[in-house]
């Protein structure tokens, strides 16, 4: 069952086209369906923001795309990941290694686990350059220093022979970013790449990534729980909740006319720098659901203001909300109607 019925061959192919992806983990408590039928696409030069709260499946989605799910306990059970028209799931492990760090770069959530502690940072970058760009030693060294300078690492030439533990957390994260962009990837996946950094450093890094998208037509998948970052940098947004994308569309539409009650609630629960009054925040009652014991029907139903009987038995698919905007909610028309009524009142 694919939610996008267009055949691969004749539609203008997306750079990355993920269809109906499903990934689960076997755990002591039971089976965790971490990603449950996720579809999205990204075009050249475009930035997609994948947002959602902790545990909703953002990282597992990106690791599944890169085929980095530890198996066991994890397993991709369904779906396809088309990159430039080729299903990455059909590649051999050797072919996949050329894709990783080559045409698809990735910045992981945990910098320390993805840098090799016994190799100098220079060596780690030049190694990747050797594999993917076929540069000789001197050229690779020059390119590595140039990229380290670009990500704002102070004094890159002398930092070249440092080991990861010599660097601060923020500097390590910049090295990770340098590695990920060193081979001019067509797609960069940035999983909470700047979350641990100070806002001024976050701004430096994200401005750099944005300029790479503009100059080199690089596509960017920003994974974050920060709704502000997505508003600033992404053209399109996909909102995840409990393993599913529950709303997606152009950023402007999602932020101004959210159709899914979760998106709506999420947006009104964050304090804004530009808020005029400091009144109470609209909080979402209850907790994020446990993926092992998901309720029947819509996973958001237990916390939803608009819940009706149907929501508790039948899980909604993404349905049209106008243009490219889709939301997985039975009651989305009523929610939109309520929003318009509220607008008229005020």
């Amino acid at each position: 069952m694919t939610s996008d019925p267009a055949p691969v061959a004749n539609a203008a192919p997306h750079l990355l086209d993920v269809r109906n992806l499903a990934t689960r983990f076997a755990t002591a408590e039971g089976c965790v369906q971490a990603v449950d039928g996720v579809s999205f696409h990204i075009d050249e030069g475009e930035t997609l923001g994948l947002v959602g709260e902790s545990g909703c499946g953002k990282s597992v989605t990106s690791l599944s795309v890169m085929r980095l799910i530890p198996t066991p306990p994890g397993e991709i059970t369904d779906g396809s990941v088309l990159f430039e028209g080729t299903d990455l799931q059909t590649l051999s492990e050797r072919e996949m290694r050329r894709v990783r760090g080559g045409s698809i770069g990735m910045i992981f959530q945990e910098p320390m686990t993805s840098l090799n502690p016994v190799l100098t940072i220079g060596r780690q970058i030049t190694e990747a350059l050797g594999i993917h760009l076929d540069l000789n030693k001197g050229a690779a060294r020059n390119r590595a220093i140039e990229i380290l300078a670009r990500v704002g690492l102070p004094d890159p030439a002398s930092r070249f022979s440092d080991y990861p533990h010599h660097l601060s957390g923020g500097q390590r994260q910049r090295v990770m970013i340098a590695m990920a962009i060193s081979c001019n990837p067509k797609l960069l996946i940035a999983d909470e790449a700047t979350t641990a950094l100070d806002v001024t450093i976050q701004a430096q890094i994200l401005e750099l990534l944005q300029s790479l998208c503009e100059e080199l037509r690089m596509a960017l998948l920003i994974i974050t729980h920060n709704l502000g970052v997505v508003a600033r940098y992404a053209q399109r947004v996909a909102v995840m909740y409990a393993g599913k994308i529950i709303e997606t569309g152009a950023a402007d539409e999602i932020y101004t006319t959210p159709r899914h009650p979760y998106t709506k609630a999420l947006l009104s629960s964050v304090p804004r720098l530009d808020a005029i009054t400091t009144t109470r925040l609209t909080s979402i009652e209850g907790e994020i659901p446990d993926l092992v014991n998901l309720p029947e029907g819509c996973a958001f139903a237990p916390r939803c203001r608009w819940v009706v009987d149907r929501c508790r038995v039948e899980s909604p698919e993404l349905g049209p909300s106008g243009g490219s905007h889709t939301a997985a909610c039975w009651e989305q028309d009523r929610i939109d109607h309520d929003r318009l009524a509220e607008l008229q009142q005020s």
Partner: peptide, 15 residues
């Protein structure tokens, strides 16, 4: 000023 300008606001049009 720099600190505040670095904080993104969840509003694409404003951003």
């Amino acid at each position: 000023r720099a600190l505040m300008s670095a904080v993104p606001i969840p509003d694409p049009a404003l951003e």
